[in-house]
C-alpha cells in the first residue's frame, strides 16, 4: 500500500472542535460503519498510545466515531498519552449510494481539528500523525 504522510498543520479551526466532547453527527444512510457510540477516552487514565487505521474504500463517511473518540482525549484525563497515530488506507472507489464527498470531507476536517487541538492542549507531549492514502487525499481535495 502506498501511503503518504500528511501535514497536520491546522486548516481553519472549527470552533466546535475546542468545545466539549463531540456528539455523533447525523447518519447519512450508509449507517453500518457508524456506531451509535464511540470510545470515551476520558475514562482511560493509563492510556499512553493510540493507533487507529481505517479503510476508506466504499465508505460514505469519516468515520464519525473517530472524531468522537478523539474529542475526549484531554491532558487532565489522559496524562500519560504520548503517541497518537491515525492511518486511512485504501481509496473511496465504488462509492456506495448516498455517498457525499462533502460529508466525508467534513468528517475528516473534524478529525484534523481534533488532532490539532490535542497537539496544542498536550503542549508537545503528544506527537500526532495522520497518514492518508494519496488517492484518498486526492478525493478529499477535489
Amino acid at each position: 500500500m502506498s501511503v503518504t504522510a500528511v501535514n497536520t498543520t491546522p486548516r481553519p479551526v472549527d470552533s466546535g472542535a475546542q468545545g466539549p466532547t463531540l456528539t455523533p453527527p447525523p447518519d447519512v444512510g450508509i449507517g453500518r460503519e457508524a456506531p451509535e457510540r464511540s470510545f470515551n477516552f476520558s475514562e482511560f487514565p493509563k492510556l499512553e498510545e493510540v493507533n487507529i487505521s481505517h479503510a476508506v474504500c466504499r465508505v460514505g463517511r469519516g468515520p464519525p466515531w473517530i472524531p468522537m473518540a478523539l474529542s475526549a482525549l484531554r491532558p487532565t484525563t489522559s496524562p500519560r498519552l504520548s503517541s497518537l497515530r491515525l492511518v486511512f488506507f485504501g481509496s473511496p472507489s465504488n462509492l456506495p449510494r448516498g455517498f457525499s464527498i462533502q460529508d466525508m470531507s467534513n468528517d475528516h476536517q473534524r478529525i484534523a481539528d481534533q488532532v490539532t487541538r490535542i497537539e496544542r492542549e498536550f503542549e508537545g507531549a503528544v506527537n500526532p500523525t495522520i497518514i492518508r492514502d494519496p488517492k484518498f487525499e486526492a478525493v478529499l481535495n477535489m
Partner: peptide, 11 residues
C-alpha cells in the same frame, strides 16, 4: 478502560 495502556485498532 482503567487498565489499558496501548490501543491499536485496524478497521
Amino acid at each position: 478502560s482503567k487498565t489499558i495502556v496501548k490501543l491499536s485498532l485496524n478497521v
